[in-house]
């Protein structure tokens, strides 16, 4: 199941086991096959890559402009490396889609969005137990946060600041 902040989404990407991507318009390849897949790319074709949470940013940085999607693998919901890698990818200027791929739980949805992910790809075993409406409801439980720089607006420190400025002005 694929989810984004608006609810269930359809996955238009085609997984490829290796670099043989033919003319698949949106081809999602494993990290190991990426250099070859990029070399095989045909005009108009978009490439996405599946990377492990342990990937060092330096290894992928130079390739970011070539990529339309990066799917970071979460081997378990308890393995939070992907959140930090997402932050580093966004900081490095990656503007394509960022996907968290693995058995995340509903309660991590807001965190994932704040860290720069656009969507979650859940395995069937997790999706079966956690229907899409639970993911939407979980978002409603997470309002303003204390940390600055995670997601758009809405952080408490900046809201306090705005309030102070408004009071001073008015």
């Amino acid at each position: 199941m694929l989810l984004d902040r608006n609810g269930p989404a359809s996955d238009s990407w085609t997984h490829s086991d290796g670099a043989a991507i033919g003319n698949i318009p949106l081809a999602l390849v494993p990290w190991e096959a990426l250099p070859e897949a990029l070399a095989n790319r045909v005009p108009g074709q978009q490439i996405g890559v599946v990377v492990p949470g342990s990937l060092a940013i330096a290894e992928i940085e130079a390739l970011l402009p070539e990529l339309a999607l990066i799917a970071i693998g979460f081997p378990a919901y308890s393995d939070g490396r992907g959140f930090s890698l997402a932050r580093r990818l966004r900081r490095a200027g990656f503007t394509g889609r960022l996907r968290a791929s693995g058995p995340l739980i509903v309660d991590q949805f807001a965190y994932a969005l704040f860290c720069g992910f656009d969507e979650i790809a859940l395995p069937a075993s997790s999706a079966g137990r956690q229907p899409a409406e639970q993911w939407q409801r979980a978002l409603s439980h997470v309002g303003a946060r204390y940390q600055r720089g995670y997601g758009d607006g809405g952080n408490i420190l900046d809201q306090r600041r705005a309030k102070r400025l408004a009071q001073a002005a008015g």
């Binding site: 739980i105 509903v106 309660d107 137990r129 956690q130 229907p131 639970q134 409801r137 979980a138 439980h141 997470v142 309002g143 303003a144 946060r145 204390y146 408490i156 809201q159 306090r160």
Partner: peptide, 27 residues
Amino acid sequence: DEFDERFVRERVEQFSDQVARRLDGSL
């Protein structure tokens, strides 16, 4: 302040929801 207050109240609601999801087998 109002923000801290809301933050902590949200956690109570969130945990109630988590307990409910454990009890119905979602988690």
